[in-house]
Design a protein around this nucleic acid. Structure first.
Lengths: 145, 145
DNA sequence: CGTGAAAGTCCAGAACT
DNA sequence: AGTTCTGGACTTTCACG
């Protein structure tokens, strides 16, 4: 991972559908060279994939929340994942050090769906209390460079 | 935005570099038809762009935190954005309803950098207290379908 | 809103510096 | 590491249903 790789990555973060040729022109490399570098970054899991960024509001996902979860006892990351990945409204889960044990990102079409999703999270018997913060507006969101 | 659009979008969320032809084969449309639909979704800002997903750990971004910020008085979203967007370690900001006023996602190379970034957030005189949660592990992270 | 065909562009691998 | 070359695939525009 040298400086050219970083410039290629920066380009892909901004425009993931750019052609290798186009990227090559910017960084001063031929298209095959760029492809080889990108393939390598994907193979080494530095790049984990390419995705579209969507405007949730334009798609009916009007409501979003971050839910802190406190567990009664220790829970393994694997168990945590198993219990939450089947809930489609859960789009992110992180274990945290601080007051709570885990932070869960929930996205839904309306408030009622947020509520029922939090209920589903609570169904796990090991969950103690939860503390939800409803997102009012996205101020800033940028891909990590 | 009909069902075919949703299937195209789902495909792009999974693999943003897929060719229009490939997507067309999955949804039963020709490549030009797919391109027109994608162009339309981009033009209408339902799709806001295409980006690479990176593995922060593989890139030296070892440390991540979510910081809740409590303000002394009301702050406008525009002011909030202005004060935080110049801090490069800040990758996400949302205003929230709950206990705190804003949730700030911070990503850094090490703990010291997290600390100094939180310090920078606190420099704004209107910030009251902050409450940080350090991310220990990413359990689940998926694009919204 | 769809298709099919044109021309231009790009990809992906091979061969070579 | 990098390049150039090449056959085949893809994108993109356009005319048309």
């Amino acid at each position: 991972m040298d400086d050219i790789d970083r410039r290629i990555l920066a380009h892909l973060l901004r425009e993931a559908r750019a052609s290798f040729q186009e990227i090559g022109a910017k960084v001063g490399l031929s298209a095959p060279a760029v492809k080889r570098r990108v393939d390598k970054m994907v193979a080494s899991r530095q790049i984990t994939g390419f995705t579209a960024m969507v405007n949730p509001a334009a798609l009916g996902w009007k409501t979003e929340a971050y839910v802190e979860v406190y567990y009664r006892d220790n829970i393994s990351p694997a168990d945590l994942r198993r219990s939450l990945e089947r809930i489609p409204q859960v789009v992110g889960v992180w274990t945290i050090a601080g007051e709570a044990d885990a932070l869960v990102h929930v996205i839904a079409t309306d408030m009622a769906e947020i509520e029922s999703t939090v209920e589903r999270i609570r169904e796990n018997t090991r969950v103690g209390r939860t503390r939800s913060s409803i997102v009012m507006s996205r101020i800033l969101e940028r891909p990590r460079t």
